[in-house]
Design a protein around this nucleic acid. Structure first.
Lengths: 164, 164
DNA sequence: TATTGTTATACTCTATAACTATA
DNA sequence: TATAGTTATAGAGTATAACAATA
């Protein structure tokens, strides 16, 4: 959450008789960027996850696989930094991907502490439908944001860069 | 997540020697609205939570208290709908708030299955610093989005409404 | 039959701390 | 001393299913 996170009042229904029969009122939060951000992200995530949810392909894996795909040979710590998670969170993630033959770990030849990561052929193959799904999902988002897409993304990136 | 979610490559550092010494490359995701949304929300959430994190004031409570504040007398199911969580997730949430004397549960007089919720005086008092903190956080966000705030929020709301 | 709220239960994601092996 | 990765562990947060009470 950013300003924490109730959902859009649009879904509110079946109010108690004790309460006025209007929609849920989120007023003071309505003009909060952080709140709108949270609600939009939550909705987008759920819409995406709903269809990705193929038992063996956890949605959280997509991000990691994408980073590895684009940065073959990176280490686990590199990955942990790029997805903003602790390295101890990366270990089970990579183990799951390795167990399924999607990621290969090779010891670094120059630093024996390090393991380098790359997708296997199976990993690359498994990434394709995920990427296709993400692109389809994003086409829907494109349809929603329309011709303001570039400015919208620019603002989102600005927020990510500067709020920290 | 929407397009799932690595963080901005800006933090990437300490690359393995096996890999070119450039920043992590997230290319194919860079133009994804869903991805940018996730990264921005994650950054905003962390920045917010970092300072809200006062032992007894869990960040997740803010949303619920805000909804109750704005809709006194609502039921738990109403609340669960408005924050898009299952009613079974609301039970422990409300119990925590009630145990601390922040929320009061009253049996509905017209439907004996229902409990109506309202903030206690202590709850209203506890909400103030949270709200103040959220407003301060949002002032930072305002500074980042600048004069595009209205359009930005409008787009975020549009996404939330239409992606479902 | 349907709804409200609770409970039991389990799963995911994440982090902290302590450890090892290297550097 | 510092870093890479693992393990043990714990804590949020959430959901599903079954249940009792009530509608």
């Amino acid at each position: 959450m950013s300003a924490a996170g109730p959902q859009p009042p649009g879904r509110a229904a079946g109010r108690a008789p004790e309460q006025a029969d209007t929609e849920l009122n989120l007023c003071p939060l309505d003009d909060f960027v952080g709140f709108a951000l949270r609600v939009a992200q939550d909705a987008s995530f759920r819409a995406f996850a709903k269809t990705t949810d193929r038992a063996d392909l956890k949605p959280g894996w997509f991000a990691a696989m994408m980073v590895i795909h684009n940065n073959p040979g990176l280490t686990q710590v590199d990955l942990s930094r790029s997805i903003a998670r602790d390295k101890s969170s990366v270990t089970p993630l990579i183990q799951g991907l390795e167990r399924r033959g999607l990621v290969e770990r090779r010891p670094s030849r120059t630093d024996r502490r390090r393991m380098t990561l790359r997708l296997t052929a199976a990993g690359e193959a498994a990434l394709q439908p995920l990427l296709a799904h993400a692109m389809e999902h994003d086409r829907k988002l494109d349809g929603i944001v329309g011709d303001q897409k570039a400015a919208f993304i620019a603002l989102l990136k600005k927020v990510a860069d500067e709020i920290a």
